[in-house]
Amino acid sequence: MRLMQIEGSRMLGVATRFMRRADLSEDAVQETFVMIWRRAGQFDPSRGTAKGWIYTILRNRCLTMLRQEQRDIATAPEVIDQSLDDHVLQTAWDRLDTASDLRKCLEALDEGTRHAILSSYVLGLSHGEIAGRMSAPLGSVKSWLRRGLSKLRECMS
């Protein structure tokens, strides 16, 4: 029970970084628990950790909800408080274990590429949104991300 409380709290934290709204974040976590329940038989421990499996379900659920929201409500990009997002990204970066491979490999990337990757993973931003935030051409952002992810893969293998 304590484990679930802690994991549930962390899941709510991850969902809030994506959804930005408390009601939507709770929905995402609840839907995730329902999916975990329904799909428990599909989990195969030989293919990864339970934690990885759970967070994948959560992240996918958040992304689906985000994309749905964007279709339903045409939220202008300027409505979103960008400074808040920048703060979230900075906090994530500061908290990322300095001894971890991910941290070391991300540090080896140039700042723009690192920012683009973190914006996608932590905030769930799309290529287009990242390009808008960084005031950079979409094609350039796509190629930064592709090259950056490839370097990360190499660095962490």
Partner: peptide, 28 residues
């Protein structure tokens, strides 16, 4: 392929652990 996906997920999992632990709302 399933294994490669799991490995890729594991690479990024440390970032999920940087999220705040938020109290679950009452009645959750």
């Amino acid at each position: 392929i399933a294994f490669a996906i799991a490995r890729a997920r594991q690479r990024f999992l440390a970032l999920d652990e940087t999220a705040d632990e938020l109290p679950l709302p009452e009645g959750f």
